[in-house]
Design a protein around this nucleic acid. Sequence first.
DNA 1: GGAAGTTGCCTCGGGAAACA
DNA 2: TGTTTCCCGAGGCAACTTCC
Length: 313
Amino acid sequence: MTKIDVTDMDLNLLTAFQALMQDRNVTRAGLRLGLSQSSMSHALTRLRKLTGDPLFVRLPGGMEPTPYALQIDTPIREGLALMQAGLNRVTHFDPATTDRTFQLLLSDIGELVYLPQLIVRLSQIAPGANLRVLQLPRESYRDAFIAGNADLAMGFLPSLQAGFYQQRLFDDSYVCLARADHPRVGKRLTLKQFAAESHVLIEPAGSRYSHASAQHSTTSLIERYLASKNMKRRIALRVPHFMVVPSIVQQTDLLAIVPSYVMAYMKPMPGLKTLPLPIDVPRFEVKQFWHERSHQDPANQWLRKVVAELFLQ
DNA sequence: GGAAGTTGCCTCGGGAAACA
DNA sequence: TGTTTCCCGAGGCAACTTCC
């Protein structure tokens, strides 16, 4: 018996074989496949050459399969059925039964704001779904999406504006955070006071070196504004995470600029106060971002819908 | 003799190589 | 890089063969 290399095999020959097994007649098998009788016969000849077996012999009852043909019938039939099912697979996502792990790119502010609501919602409608939060440098977000290591990113991410699908969730503005009993800052903050005080700056990993982030950051906007007034503020502390900021501000005279929506989660924290910025900083858009590769993925579509239902304003 | 399978030859289309 | 030429395989036509 000839050893068959699958790379030599034409898929059409397997369908011809299957048709012959069903009809036991070259003419009818050809009709079934839309081929002439002679084309079917040629196909059978090629199959015979490939397998080294006559496969079908002409007997009074029709074209009877050889023992070898009977032996390979089942694997060929099952293989073709498997391919057919695979090619016609209906992409369907059922949140009630899924055990999929969704990978989110979030800052620690994002974790604080989005995760609790998202987890609660998922436990209600997709109890088997899991979340994995990745805190990566902003400059790595794009690569994480391209590599398939991230499903969704949420936040104010100017570096992801181009080449990504995005949906605006809400607008927000910045406020100034200070300790409640700050010796020099009362209920209002003047520009002169703002520039004179020392500051703690939240500088997420990667944002410092990202051109897009640097161009759009509130920090650079404030620095340019102060420079236009011949003023400059002192950044006494730079931290990569937001979480430590309230505690630091609470125990020092440092000021911090934070998104106003985050303060909704800071209210229970005593010893802090928020003040309007003395500078007219443009509002910013918080969005969800996703890559083209997951745009049509039903699971990803479902997750984006859940996020929009929770946070779209 | 008719039905059905086999085979030689032809056309057509696609891929590879050669060439301007 | 685009065009032409050559080669190969698939499929169809028609003649031939085989079998009942």
